[in-house]
Design a protein around this nucleic acid. Structure first.
Length: 967
RNA sequence: GCUCAGAUGGUGGAACUGGUAGACACGCAGGACUUAAAAUCCUGUUCCCGUUAAAGGAGUGCGGGUUCGAUUCCCGCUCUGAGUACCA
């Protein structure tokens, strides 16, 4: 009995000690890399630089799930590969550690957000470390640490001290603007600024008070205060950016969001709209993502046109355009202007205008409304206000509106045109007023039909029987001097005429708004500003960082001020500090520069470091940041370039979006009795059609290949400890559904568990093996065994059956060299086009081939280990050292050189197809020319059989590829 | 509605410039080893028809087209996913 036990258990024990021991290997090398700072990047070398960046994470309390590392693994493989290719690689990691969740946790528990953040970062770090990333941790950044946000505040100061000079098409210093005002007054300044700016001479400027100076300059600064309509979320107690609001609800938490007027810090990103648009053509980003940014920027080329108000007393026909012109008073008497300005992209249709519509919120509405119409208009405005943003969007079919009683005149033919209000016109876009051309615009068409307004055809081929026809083809009719012209000439003619009359001009409009830059929250960067006499002043750069003060509670004050209002002893000598903090995107809009020189306390990064690293060569992250982080980062980068602090116009040369990993939920099916109550019996998925059941989520970690582990299920749900199971083929098969990965659905797969079971190298390769990096897919652990088996097979190439290391120095055979060089070339090609899944397959093929060849030659395995090292760094380090190399040196070994000579073949098995259908193969020498090939093929017995005595009509021979016979 | 991406075996996917469709892996089936199980190894596996083998037919969402030849190019459609929307 004892003897038998020993015999049985011995090989098992030996296995345990000598087989591929991923746990020991991985821990050993992770410690070695950390102790020896193997992946430290130098800011000065003679190697070419390569900067590989991941979008840094917000350290959430839930830790990493299996979807998070996908992009990090890809970028790590790439970074390691580039090191082998002789580059000095910067591959850093950090944390975007300001944000709402830590603050909400603080509100609930009273725990300081910095403590929560610290804990979460520790978890992240532990999880990241055990995947074996080659990050240079000495360069770690945290946006919430004072020596980081000091520089975020510093950039804010630079923005405050700058204005946008349209003539130079760049940002310039406010000092330069002041100098201009002092010498030449406001004349000759072409700036991106507020709408209502003063016009003054140099002397008038000098005569102004300090208060007047500052108030005026604020209208020019790139970061400025403005009363604006904001997305206010009462539940979160803060303002949200447009991209944080989805269908009228907050993206985080799903709380209702309303429009509210508030004085807010804003960033003049609109100054950069054109450059942000043009820059897209110079960078290698996924087309859909560029498209999203283009849509967000929303450039439309058109014209603004002024429709003079028709005095109710005088007939519009009697007025000359000269009189209209004289009566215009630009920019004064707000609320009683003498014209309505509209924006249109189809100014060529101006003779088809049969009414003008202004938004209900338009500032002229009150003055336009005649006493007889006042009741109607007021009722309509009330009705509009009642409708929520959501209703207004959902309800695009119902036509509604009200007549103001006023008229304007068409600036080109003097026609009297009624002015309506309607909620299909948005106050926030263009001028908040449109010229309605029912024949060309469907919304105008429906409106005209509903309220019985004229529909004037203006193009000869227009068909407006049932709907508007926005065609640009055909010749104009009913259009005065434009009759007979085509679209292009007509547009040019109208613009010229309007400009001559001073009633319109060509104009480019952008949909993008200035970015709100303030949150009424605690856990963010304090704005380095205090208020004196109601105006903002910067604190001196030498006083940075302005530290976030301690407060007793993380809630707004009793008077409704932001949490910072609770801080005691937090006051500038000359006034009160700003109480709002910066938004989440502030810290992430420049962090890639901090990695270049993370410990600099004199500058955000040294000139030297910036000139060396320049920009990010490869950036990997999710597409959900398309119109947030990625747009703001480009904006700040362009600004920093304008003020001479960085060297590149675009920060991220190449960008890849990794796909989203969705959850894959498993279900068990509980039998329901006749009373509709759940029983204690569960039915396997294949049999549920014969029973009445209700599905129940089951933890995916106790299911393997859809087979439920019954014992673990009883542990997972103790209330079903004595449950019965109706099995199929002796197994309980679970159902499957793709859902979001979340705790409540029990479909979260934690990388820790997979690493414990298979090791980091297996996890890394499996995540890559799942499919193309950019494709979204549900997580499925089912195939991971295959990758694990591959690594064990790879390990076995180096060992005999008793796990002795058996690599020999014999010269490799032709077949072995061929396998090796195939993989060298393939991996190089695949990695350069980010096709990681196919390179994993190729490694499997190579190892399968070499196993069949029983290859244990050093010359082959040495090179193979280097090629695989970026993917499975731990096992490769171990084997590298077993091969007799120095520990840690594989990271900078030279990637094997591909030699095409080893792949040269002298024979090729030509596929022979008949009418394009492959039928047989004929092996021929590759040196044969087409005519010989044709003769040889036709003489082949197999081919003769298929020809069946017929003469081919045509024979296509592609040398080295295929032969196609047409019969 | 508009814009973009996609659709290939039971499953994840491969086929890069139009040239042998289904690589690689999972799963499944059968076998070897084992008292047994696990592990490991071997064989098969697009579908239909053929009881082995051979042979044949169909086949990359659907319908057409270009071509000697189409998963790949063109036209039209269906479906799925993502983004976006009274944007004048």
């Amino acid at each position: 009995m004892l003897k038998q036990f020993l015999l049985f258990s011995q090989p098992h024990t030996v296995n345990k000690q000598m087989d591929y021991q991923f746990k020991d290997i991985e821990q050993k090398w992770q410690k070695f890399w950390a102790d020896n700072k193997t992946f430290r990047a130098e800011n000065k070398t003679n190697k070419p630089k390569y900067y590989v960046l991941d979008m840094f994470p917000y350290p959430s309390g839930a830790g990493l799930h299996v979807g998070h590392p996908l992009g990090y693994i890809a970028s790590d493989i790439f970074a390691r590969y580039k090191r082998l290719k002789g580059f000095n690689v910067l591959h850093p990691m950090g944390y975007d550690s300001f944000g709402l969740p830590a603050e909400q946790y603080a509100i609930q528990t009273g725990q300081h957000p910095s403590v929560t953040t610290e804990d979460n970062i520790a978890t992240y770090r532990r999880q990241l470390d055990q995947i074996g990333f080659s990050f240079d941790w000495e360069r770690e950044v945290r946006t919430s640490s004072p020596n980081y946000y000091k520089w975020t505040q510093w950039i804010f100061i630079q923005l405050f001290n700058s204005w946008y000079n349209k003539d130079a098409d760049k940002a310039e210093s406010i000092a330069k603007l002041v100098e201009h005002f002092e010498t030449k007054g406001s004349a000759g300044i072409n700036a991106v600024c507020d709408e209502e700016i003063l016009s003054f001479t140099a002397d008038e400027w000098k005569a102004m008070s300090e208060y007047e100076h500052q108030a005026e300059l604020l209208k020019y600064r790139l970061t400025y205060l403005r009363e604006s309509t904001v997305n206010w979320c009462a539940a979160l107690g803060t303002v949200l950016a447009n991209d944080e609001v989805k269908d009228g609800f907050s993206e985080r938490g799903g709380y209702p969001v309303e429009q509210k007027k508030m004085t807010q810090w804003s960033m003049r990103i609109t100054a950069y709209a054109q450059r942000l648009l043009e820059g897209l053509d110079t960078i290698d980003w996924p087309e859909p993502l560029k498209e999203m940014q283009r849509n967000w920027i929303g450039k439309s080329v058109g014209a603004s046109v002024r429709f003079p108000l028709a005095s109710p007393k005088s007939s519009p026909k009697e007025r000359t355009s000269e009189e209209d012109n004289n009566s215009l008073s630009f920019g004064e008497g707000r609320g009683e202007a003498s014209y309505i300005e509209v924006f249109t992209t189809r100014v060529d249709t101006i003779f088809g205008v049969s009414f003008v519509v202004v938004a209900p919120e338009h500032e002229l509405v009150a003055s336009l409304t005649t006493p007889e119409q006042k009741a109607d208009i007021d009722a309509y405005i009330v009705q509009t206000k009642k409708k929520s943003e959501l209703d207004r969007m959902a309800d695009t079919k119902t036509v509604s509106g009200a007549f103001t009683g006023s008229y304007v005149t068409n600036p080109l033919n003097g026609d009297k045109i009624p002015v309506w209000i309607a909620d299909y016109v948005l106050a926030g876009y263009g001028t908040g007023a449109v010229m309605a051309v029912p024949s060309g615009d469907q919304r105008d068409y429906l409106f005209a039909k509903h309220f019985n307004l004229p529909i004037i055809p203006i193009i000869d081929i227009q068909n407006i029987e049932v709907e508007a026809d926005p065609t640009k083809e055909g010749k104009y009719i009913n259009s005065d001097f434009m009759n007979g012209l085509g679209y292009k000439e007509a547009t040019a003619a109208v613009v010229a005429k309007l400009e001559a009359l001073g009633l319109g001009k060509a104009k480019v409009n952008f949909r993008m708004r200035d970015a709100i830059f303030g949150r009424q929250r605690y856990w963010g960067e304090p704005v380095p500003v205090y208020f004196k006499g109601g105006l903002p002043y910067l604190i001196g750069e030498e006083h940075l960082p302005l530290l976030l003060p301690e407060i007793d509670k993380y809630l707004p004050t009793e008077t409704g001020e932001p949490p910072l209002g609770r801080a005691t002893d937090w006051k500038h000598p000359e006034g009160e500090y700003e109480l709002s903090t910066m938004p989440g995107w502030a810290g992430s809009s420049w962090y890639w520069y901090r990695y270049m020189d993370a410990h600099n306390d004199k500058e955000f990064a040294s000139r030297e470091a910036i000139e060396y690293w320049k920009d990010v060569d490869l950036y990997i992250g999710g597409s959900e940041h398309a119109t947030g982080h990625l747009l703001y980062s480009r904006f700040w980068n362009k600004f920093l370039k304008d003020i001479g602090k960085v060297v590149e116009e675009e920060p991220f040369k190449k960008l890849i979006n990794q796909g989203m990993i969705q959850g894959r939920s498993n279900f068990v099916y509980r039998l329901i009795d006749d009373m509709g109550k759940g029983t204690n019996t569960f039915v396997s998925h294949g049999l549920i059609k014969d029973h009445k059941t209700s599905p129940l989520h089951v933890d995916v970690n106790i299911v393997e290949n859809e087979v439920l582990n019954l014992n673990k299920f009883k542990e997972f749900r103790p209330e079903f400890a004595d449950a019965e199971f109706i099995l199929e083929n002796g197994k309980y098969i679970c159902g499957v559904e793709v859902e979001k990965m979340s705790k409540s659905k029990f479909n979260v797969v934690n990388p820790d568990e997979l690493i414990a079971r298979y090791g980091a190298d297996t996890l890394r390769m499996y995540e890559m093996f799942l499919g193309p990096l950019e494709q979204s897919k549900p997580w499925n652990t089912n195939g991971i065994e295959g990758v694990f088996k591959f690594l064990r097979k790879f390990w076995r190439l180096f060992h005999d059956a008793d796990w002795n290391f058996i690599v020999v120095n014999e010269a490799p055979t032709k077949a072995e060299l061929k396998s090796l060089h195939k993989i060298i070339r393939k991996v190089e090609e695949d990695i350069e086009r980010f096709s990681f899944n196919t390179s994993v397959s190729s490694f499997m093929i190579a190892v399968n081939e070499l196993t069949d060849l029983k290859c244990n030659k050093r010359a082959i395995l040495h090179e193979l280990v280097i090629a695989l090292a970026p993917y499975a760094p731990h096992i490769c380090e171990e084997l590298w050292v077993l091969l007799g190399n120095d520990a840690g040196t594989i990271s900078t070994a030279a990637y094997p050189k591909f030699n095409p000579a080893y792949l040269v073949e002298d024979e090729f098995s030509y596929p022979v197809s008949f009418n394009g259908k492959m039928k047989t193969n004929v092996s021929l020498s590759l040196t044969m020319e087409a005519a010989d090939i044709e003769a040889a093929i036709l003489a082949n017995a197999d081919v003769q059989k298929y020809l069946d005595g017929k003469t081919p009509k045509k024979v296509i021979v592609v040398k080295g590829r295929i032969v196609n016979i047409v019969i």
